[in-house]
């Protein structure tokens, strides 16, 4: 084989591998989309539906549609979907946006302290954070339940079956983000903040006016990550939120999968729908994930 052929063979091999890999990723995605457009609520068997039907989407979006009751006689009835799917969608956005904003505030300030201030047990606390976040959140489900139950006796809006309660629990998952943001802060030269201090800025002013504007990329990344994870979080939400009015999208979607009857069509439509805000948030935040924000300030 000549050298040219060798290169060609390697290229073909690499492309074949990558194409297989792409298929592996894309097929489930296409299946979910096609299931949401299929007639009836069956587990997807073929990649593309024989007949496209928007029934599931209509159900999810709360638009009345005709459903065949008896295939033999062709008898149909008008189904007027209740509002829940859209409500769940709205709940999910509310919870995820609030929790993510809260996470940015908490982890940003905490990371600043860890990166810039010197205090006792600083490194111990940092390692403790890292170790604690290795335990999955699900392990503390029982504790969350008891805590919220207890809190609800005194503060109604923070108890079980409330969204603020769920957000409170979500806010506990910041240790990862503290580490991420702290790492970013440490790449920003301290002399800029020292310079601001000499200019007369307080510690808080320095944080808000000097460090934050330079840290937009990392905050955008943290917002995207936490938004995605809370948009699709199921275990905690399913335990905390009990009435269907309060459910988030993930809990709601799961409710279509009864033991006796799994409504795959509706489930899929809802799953695809939940991808929309994630995409929107990603596109919005992507503008801030740009390099060079700190360039020019100091000589590297």
């Amino acid at each position: 084989m000549t050298a040219h052929q060798k290169v060609l063979a390697r290229k073909v091999g690499a492309h074949a591998f990558l194409i297989c890999f792409l298929i592996l990723i894309l097929v489930p995605f296409v299946m979910v989309i096609s299931a949401s457009l299929r007639q009836g609520n069956f587990a997807p068997s073929r990649l593309l539906p024989d007949k496209v039907s928007l029934d599931h989407w209509k159900f999810v979006l709360g638009i009345p549609y005709q459903e065949v009751v008896n295939p033999a006689t062709g008898e149909t009835r008008t189904v007027k979907p209740s509002t829940p799917p859209l409500l769940w969608f709205w709940n999910s956005i509310k919870v995820s946006v609030t929790a993510s904003a809260g996470i940015i505030f908490l982890s940003g300030t905490a990371a600043y302290a860890f990166a810039r201030l010197r205090f006792k047990f600083r490194s111990t606390t940092l390692s403790a954070l890292l170790i604690l976040q290795m335990f999955p959140m699900v392990l503390s489900l029982v504790a969350f339940y008891v805590i919220l139950d207890f809190a609800g006796q005194y503060v109604k809006w923070l108890g079980l079956n409330t969204q603020p309660g769920l957000i409170m629990i979500y806010l506990g998952g910041i240790s990862n983000y503290i580490w991420m943001i702290k790492g970013y802060f440490e790449t920003i030269p301290a002399s800029m903040e020292e310079s601001a201090r000499i200019d007369g800025a307080s510690q808080f002013q320095t944080f808000i006016r000097i460090l934050l504007p330079m840290s937009l990329p990392i905050f955008a990344v943290v917002f995207i990550l936490s938004f995605i994870s809370y948009m699709s979080e199921y275990p905690v939400a399913s335990v905390v939120l009990q009435s269907s009015d309060n459910w988030t999208l993930a809990v709601g979607a799961n409710s279509f999968l009864y033991e006796q009857e799994k409504l795959w069509g509706r489930f899929s439509a809802l799953a695809v729908l939940s991808g929309v805000p994630i995409t929107v948030v990603f596109l919005l935040c992507q503008r801030f994930v740009i390099g060079g924000l700190t360039s020019g300030g100091v000589k590297e």
Partner: peptide, 18 residues
């Protein structure tokens, strides 16, 4: 620092890049 009546010029300029 701000109350000491001093101003400082840093080696790496330390300008505010934004």
């Amino acid at each position: 620092p701000k109350d000491r009546g001093i101003a400082m010029v840093f080696q790496n300029y330390a300008l505010y890049p934004h």
